[in-house]
Amino acid sequence: MGSNSSRIGDLPGNEHLKKFSGTESLSENDPFWNQLLSFSFPAPTSSADLKLLEEATVSVRRSLVENNPRTGNLGALIKVFLSRTKELKVSAECQNHIFIWQTHNALFIICYLLKVFICEMSEEELLLHFTYEEKSPGSYSSDSEDLLEELVCCLMQLITDIPLFLFSLLSKKHNKVLEQATQSLRGSLSSSDVPLPDYAQDLNVIEEVIRMMLEIINSCLTNSLHHNPNLVYALLYKRDLFEQFRTHPSFQDIMQNIDLVITFFSSRLLQAGAELSVERVLEIIKQGVVALPKDRLKKFPELKFKYVEEEQPEEFFIPYVWSLVYNSAVGLRWNPQDIQLFTVDSD
């Protein structure tokens, strides 16, 4: 890895990887990380690709396993990733592709190492690799758990925009089906012999899903706005998605609160001036949450979901989730002989 490495075959002798896995402790502020993360070979897209990667990095992994509890370099890499994620939105807006590319590479290395460590270590041994401090052998600090928790929380924040991304896809699908229905109707006027596709049913299904997503967003805003500054940020960033639904008869009622929130916080951002950083925008949003009168948000019936849970649901869900990881994660390779939680398909 590094700016001079673009082939998996080069990895065993790569100087950047040797330094990362060696005996020298690296600060998260070290310029070294820019060099390490500037690699360009494609990420594995199959189990076979990942097997080649694992075989090429055996010596590096062994060195890291031996030295990392003392150097804390894996923890430093995670901190580098965490600091970079704070600037991802700005980088996307500015089309800073190099920054995004390096952040992606950091996450790839972290995911790859975690996968390997999970396969080869106990939980106690794994925790030793997430913090560095003077400690007695076999002990670990709660800081390691804090770093893991921060990493998980960061990844959860990164996917905050995913529901809006799915909403964007639904909006495009809705517009496409509506356009097809319109064209089909026009065509039927000139030819009565051609049967019309049932676009009305497709539109009905799509609109039901769109309304459900709008109801979930609305519930987050009306019941826990103060816990969702990132959602407000995403709504402001993707405000154009909601334009077409403001006057749609199926969504007018549920759009009132969303429209109010977008308008309210947009006004506060305009008052704050231009060229605001992500941190400043989030700060303004958090201040605005306190200032927004709660009675201005229209109350809707509380969303309720019912499900039946077995006495020990983990007996089903843990093997099931791991089976999904094993069968669906194309870029992750797991040794079938080590699988004990579920039965591996013979094919």
Rank of each mutant, 00 (worst) to 15 (best):
N4S: 12
S5R: 12
L11K: 13
K19N: 00
F20I: 06
G22V: 05
E24G: 01
E24D: 09
L26W: 10
E28R: 06
P31Y: 09
L37N: 02
S38G: 13
F41V: 04
T45V: 11
S46R: 09
S46A: 04
L50Y: 12
E55I: 08
P69M: 04
G72I: 02
A76L: 13
L82R: 10
V90D: 14
W101K: 15
V116P: 00
H129Y: 03
S141D: 05
S142L: 14
E150M: 03
C154G: 03
T160A: 04
F167T: 03
S168N: 14
H174K: 07
V177S: 01
T182V: 11
S184I: 04
L189M: 13
S192R: 08
P195R: 05
P197L: 04
Q201N: 13
M213W: 07
L214A: 01
N218I: 05
N218C: 12
H227Q: 09
F245V: 04
L260W: 02
I262Y: 11
T263A: 10
S267Y: 04
Q271I: 10
A272G: 05
A274T: 09
L276Q: 08
S277L: 06
E279I: 06
I284P: 07
Q287P: 00
L292H: 08
R296W: 12
R296I: 09
L297W: 05
L297S: 00
E309L: 13
F317P: 03
F317E: 05
F317I: 11
I318D: 05
V321M: 09
D338Y: 09
T343S: 15
